[in-house]
Design a binder for these strands. Structure first.
Lengths: 217, 217
DNA sequence: CGAGGGATTGATACGTCTCAAAGCATGTGG
DNA sequence: CCACATGCTTTGAGACGTATCAATCCCTCG
């Protein structure tokens, strides 16, 4: 399978159990505690990772200590699949995590496993798409819009009315290219406009989808 | 070949002629005039593209008219290879261009052509890496640093002391997430600090590599 | 009940944007 | 060859948004 192959439609993807099986067969399982490092920035990229339980954050630190969060990964997501020789971003356990790992060499040996190939390609597709969205957001959106987009994307993942924020304000800020104070102020604003409601700082509910969507644009 | 395959080292890549041959064999050649559209935002992605001559820009327009430039592509670069079903960014000829096109279906039929597979994978690798850099830049760098990074990356491409800017200030601004005025001011600043010199608005020379590198960090 | 860490709020500083004008090339027609 | 129109770039003044620094609040946990 090459990159030029037409994509499988994500909506028709097979149940995660098959993919889980592939990882089980070829790889191993690890546990990480909150804030534990899974791989470091500039480490050689020789594994693929899949979140079984918990949330993972990728991040990059500049020489002078500024931090940019790359993305957050949830149960079922593949990560660490940059095709380059080493990781540009570190990966850390945002919460306690269980992770499936598989050596790339093992994947290569099984190249042709349609299930696994498809999953990797689909994850790569998503990764690029999310990177592109991230670029647009950071390049052209205001603080208010960024925070709205962020809440929106979290809310879209779940069916429930109430959404849990697995990350703190600092992680949000570093993902959104803002400071913790600005994030906090925007949340307060959005709540003031009754677009969203925070019963606690780690839990929210969308009240006006239209308004939120319009902002997230 | 799968994405999990270890990367070829870019420094050992074969001469471009072989790749050029592959495109010649499988695809066709097109010319585009300045500012002509090569593909539109949200078009189906069914081709791969390779710049033969000229410079290509990818860009995305939000509903309310804000523009984000994704990247610039020069002679030899592959583009339009997002693995998704359609293009998130449009591609336009920044200058008059000659482009090699090849249908993805043709590539697929020839899957296993090591040369082409390798080139696609390598281009994908670069694409992701550049996207990640872009995210860090937009998320965490000041205007001065962004402009410095941009000049740096252009200067690194060439051997010569003088570098031509194929794009205008607006394109730079939209790539860097700034306004045209801010870009202009930062250029004036960098010139004032004797880090860089502009004999004309479309041509520059680096005077203090260290200083530029430090800023680009 | 008090301590500690994250979150919020406030006041102010700073950086970038906005709007407007002027400068500078390039090309065209007189 | 000049005069002017055009489009891009630079410069300026002021407004606005986000960062910074500091204080307070609020939860959770001991």
């Amino acid at each position: 399978m090459t990159l030029a192959y037409p994509m499988s439609d994500p909506r028709t993807a097979r149940p995660a159990t098959a993919l889980s099986d592939a990882f089980e067969r070829l790889g191993s399982r690890m546990s990480y505690g909150r804030d534990e490092e899974i791989y470091a920035q500039d480490d050689e990229a020789e594994m693929l990772y899949r979140v079984v339980r918990g949330v993972v954050r990728t991040s990059r630190l500049t020489v002078d200590g500024r931090r940019q969060v790359g993305d957050f990964y949830y149960a079922g997501d593949l990560f660490g699949l940059e095709p380059g020789p080493d990781h540009r971003f570190a990966a850390e356990a945002l919460t306690d995590c269980e992770i499936h790992l598989v050596r790339r060499s093992a994947v290569r040996a099984f190249a042709g496993d349609a299930e696994l190939d498809r999953a990797i390609l689909e994850a790569t597709r998503q990764e690029m798409e999310r990177l592109q969205e991230h670029v647009v957001m950071l390049g052209r959106k205001s603080a208010r819009e960024r925070v709205a987009s962020f809440l929106m994307s979290l809310a879209q993942r779940r069916e429930e009315t109430h959404v849990d924020l697995p990350m703190g304000r600092q992680d949000m800020a570093d993902y959104l290219g803002l400071t913790i104070e600005t994030v906090s102020r925007m949340l307060t604003q959005l709540q003031g406009d009754d677009i969203v409601e925070f019963p606690s700082s780690r839990r929210f509910q969308v009240r006006k989808w239209n308004a939120l969507e319009a902002l997230a644009a």
